[in-house]
């Protein structure tokens, strides 16, 4: 059952990712990105990362995608103009890409014995309770320092974007 779900959503994720790159219109690409993010959320859920799956949906598929679409609409971008690609580039890059993927797959299959492969349902630390607990005890400092990061981002946006000096 889990294996079937994994295969289904992994395939959807890869297909959507391919579509994201191949589409010429930015809105179509943005919609495929939602597909990628959503199916990855399901993969997180299968691994027991309940909290991260929910956050993935709310933050990425929700908030960040809305921002993307807003920017695309505000800039009023149409379909991108395809630069004339040299045939040599395609002939070199595609085999290289496949070789890279094959090598990576081989390496992982060789280096990680089957027994170590993740078991579905074997991990139970992904609940909101356990994430919250480690966030406020073990990882309190990184969590708090992130607020400085956000403060700088706001300050930077104000400095670079306001009208009068």
């Amino acid at each position: 059952m889990e294996g079937l779900l994994f295969l289904t959503f992994a395939t959807i994720a890869v297909l959507c990712a391919l579509n994201l790159v191949l589409q010429t219109h930015p809105i179509s690409s943005a919609l495929s990105l939602i597909g990628v993010l959503g199916s990855i959320a399901v993969l997180y859920l299968l691994l027991g990362g309940e909290f991260i799956a929910a956050v993935q949906l709310i933050v990425y598929a929700g908030a960040i995608m809305v921002l993307f679409v807003f920017v695309i609409m505000l800039l009023n971008t149409g379909a991108e103009k395809q630069p004339t690609r040299k045939i040599v580039v395609t002939w070199i890059s595609l085999p290289l890409l496949f070789t890279f993927i094959a090598l990576a797959a081989m390496l992982i299959a060789q280096q990680v014995p089957k027994t170590e492969v993740v078991t579905f349902g074997g991990f139970s630390g992904g609940t909101t309770l356990s994430v919250g607990r480690s966030l406020f005890t073990q990882y309190l400092l990184p969590f708090e320092v992130t607020s400085i990061l956000i403060l700088i981002a706001i300050l930077g946006a104000v400095v670079l974007a306001r009208k009068e000096i």
Partner: peptide, 17 residues
């Protein structure tokens, strides 16, 4: 490593601006 990452980001984003 997480602390190093956040430190690099705090330092870099301020420097970008």
């Amino acid at each position: 490593l997480i602390m190093i990452f956040i430190g690099i980001e705090v330092s870099s984003i301020a420097t970008y601006v």
